[in-house]
């Protein structure tokens, strides 16, 4: 089944009538440290997806350096766009609209993708669509599972954000909870740095945790029974305190126990939120959704709770442009183009 968005008036914004199923969008994502471009058709069909990671450029600094990210985007953006078209096997003239993530994210980084998309919009005469990065993450699952339709409850967890959202329909969101301090991915990075595991911290902890005992240390589960908001800075402090008191600890056990605490909080709240919202489908997204512990636990607990669980492939969880292009198909159909005089929105919310 191919979905049709509500109230689609594509003939108004495009030259001639384009059926939603055929709507071909080139998406660009430059909000943080990945330079990405992708082609998506009909909001569901990922025709190509190219991601140039900058991880090596930021690794010496133990985290993303905004100025380095912004410079790298300018360097990489043309090649990434060209590759996305080549891999899709389409000419630029076959693109119906050009989308870019316009926020939230690093201001200097966002304006590279937005400027690139507007430049292509001017050359092709096609509409420009600015896309919310969080909204993009929610649409990643729709690319992975062609039968998935809202409503569902989605957890978007990354280095920048931890969000629990009920997606009631296309473009209809109800934010149920978010982090009150550190994002989940930020906690992974900080604990990894403390344990001397380097950057990025998520994959490092994930790999180490696989060899450790998740029950070795009973780290706190912050705000576990308290609403749908998250707090991870206390957990990070608990890890640091524990390690100082137990200098002979097995690092793998600490990594496994820390990861288990984060995953426990994320999955417990996600499932509780689905029950409270009376929705039977749960979805995860964002860089932290690439964590193997979280993926396994959400699948197991979700199934045990009788819920349908959608866990997108790893490449669709971490930042990519296919999710931006997919979301743009629905946004364009429902709301029309974004004006060319709109800028970047670093603090954009859902």
């Amino acid at each position: 089944m191919v979905s049709r968005p509500p109230g689609g008036a594509l003939e108004d914004v495009l030259e001639g009538v384009v059926a939603f199923e055929n709507l071909t969008v080139l998406g660009i994502e430059t909000s943080c440290d990945e330079t990405a471009a992708a082609v998506v058709r009909g909001g569901r069909d990922m025709v190509s997806s190219v991601v140039a990671t900058q991880v090596e450029r930021h690794a010496p600094y133990g985290g993303v350096v905004p100025e380095i990210a912004s410079r790298a985007h300018v360097e990489l953006v043309t090649e990434v766009i060209a590759r996305s078209l080549v891999e899709a096997g389409v000419e630029l003239s076959a693109i119906d609209a050009i989308a870019a993530c316009h926020g939230p994210g690093l201001a200097g980084a966002l304006l590279v993708g937005v400027s690139a998309a507007k430049a292509l919009a001017l050359v092709t005469g096609r509409p420009y669509v600015g896309v919310n990065h969080h909204e993009g993450h929610m649409y990643a699952a729709l690319l992975d599972d062609p039968t998935l339709e809202p409503p569902f409850v989605t957890l978007v967890a990354s280095g920048g954000h931890t969000l629990l959202v009920a997606m009631r329909g296309h473009g209809r969101y109800e934010t149920l909870g978010q982090t009150v301090d550190d994002a989940a991915g930020e906690a992974f990075d900080k604990v990894a740095r403390f344990l001397g595991l380097g950057y990025p911290g998520g994959p490092a902890i994930d790999a180490l945790a696989a060899r450790g005992d998740a029950e070795a240390v009973a780290f706190p589960r912050p705000m576990l029974d308290d609403g749908y908001d998250f707090s991870f800075s206390g957990l990070k402090t608990a890890v640091v305190t524990y390690c100082r008191r137990h200098p002979d600890l097995a690092v793998a056990d600490v990594a496994a126990s820390f990861q288990a605490a984060v995953v426990d909080v994320l999955v417990t709240k996600l499932i509780r939120a689905a029950r409270a919202a009376e929705l039977d489908t749960i979805v995860i997204g964002g860089g932290v959704a690439a964590n193997s512990g979280l993926r396994a636990r959400v699948a197991a607990d979700g199934a045990a709770a009788g819920l349908r669980v959608v866990v997108p492939s790893m490449g669709l969880c971490t930042d990519n442009a296919a999710m931006i292009a997919a979301c743009a198909c629905y946004r364009l159909a429902a709301d029309g183009p974004t004006p060319l005089d709109s800028g970047v929105r670093p603090g954009l919310r859902i």
Binding site: E67, S70, H73, V74, V77, T78, I81, A82, L92, A107, G108, L111, V112, S115, A116, K118, A119, L120, L122, V123, T124
Partner: peptide, 19 residues
């Protein structure tokens, strides 16, 4: 100005590549 340069240079190179 860095932000200005990134807008101008990105626009120029992406347009030129497309054309």
């Amino acid at each position: 100005m860095f932000t200005g340069l990134r807008v101008g240079v990105t626009t120029a190179k992406v347009m030129a590549q497309a054309l």
